[in-house]
Design a protein around this nucleic acid. Sequence first.
DNA 1: AACACGTGTAATAAAATTATTACATATGAA
DNA 2: TTCATATGTAATAATTTTATTACACGTGTT
Lengths: 107, 107
Amino acid sequence: MKNILSGDDLLKMLEALSNPYRLKIIAILHKKKEYVSQLARELGISRPLLYLHLQKLEDAKLINGHLEISNSGKAMKYYELNPFCIKLNGDFIAQAVSNLTIKGRKE
Amino acid sequence: MKNILSGDDLLKMLEALSNPYRLKIIAILHKKKEYVSQLARELGISRPLLYLHLQKLEDAKLINGHLEISNSGKAMKYYELNPFCIKLNGDFIAQAVSNLTIKGRKE
DNA sequence: AACACGTGTAATAAAATTATTACATATGAA
DNA sequence: TTCATATGTAATAATTTTATTACACGTGTT
């Protein structure tokens, strides 16, 4: 049985998940989609900082965002969770590592 | 069904896994226990740097080390993998986040 | 027009992680 | 004694990540 995830993708995902705010974002979006300003309020952080975290999660393909025009006519950027499930154990990691790059080295 | 892992422990584990060398260490130790100097050679990194990575993995309880006296009488520090298996998905994370601390805040 | 609320980013500062260098110690073998 | 191999750490440098500040722009409401 082959692993769909490359070592590099797994690493990117783990990096994206290794921050408390980003775990919280996952938890919030697991319940429902939400827009940026509201997320920032719920987390108690500034929008610029939130953007940074959202970007990392989106780069890792864990969430994705899209614009919606609200009834009142405002553009709202909603993010939603991109369902995932990884069985993280020694086997899985050993397998993924077989094609893992270290800092731009060919390896 | 309760989660044995606190949010803080999950985060620590994810942080420990979010580095290419540390993933490689996991992969190596998944096959067999190994001692520090040999690990350093296999990974192509210095021992001081390796120690840092081993420490993070050990703090996250993913590996543990112990001294062994070799036949030739030298002290060798062997590390071995501490078997683990986490089903990483939205549910699991949402659950763990319920008791997650952010930077020494009571939350 | 002024205000409240939304998106978006550039520039910078602060903090944490990662990496290197230089040591110290000990054992067995040549 | 000198060499090769092992453990272990302190001090520092380099890099990356995280966080802040200051902007710009747009829409609807008062």
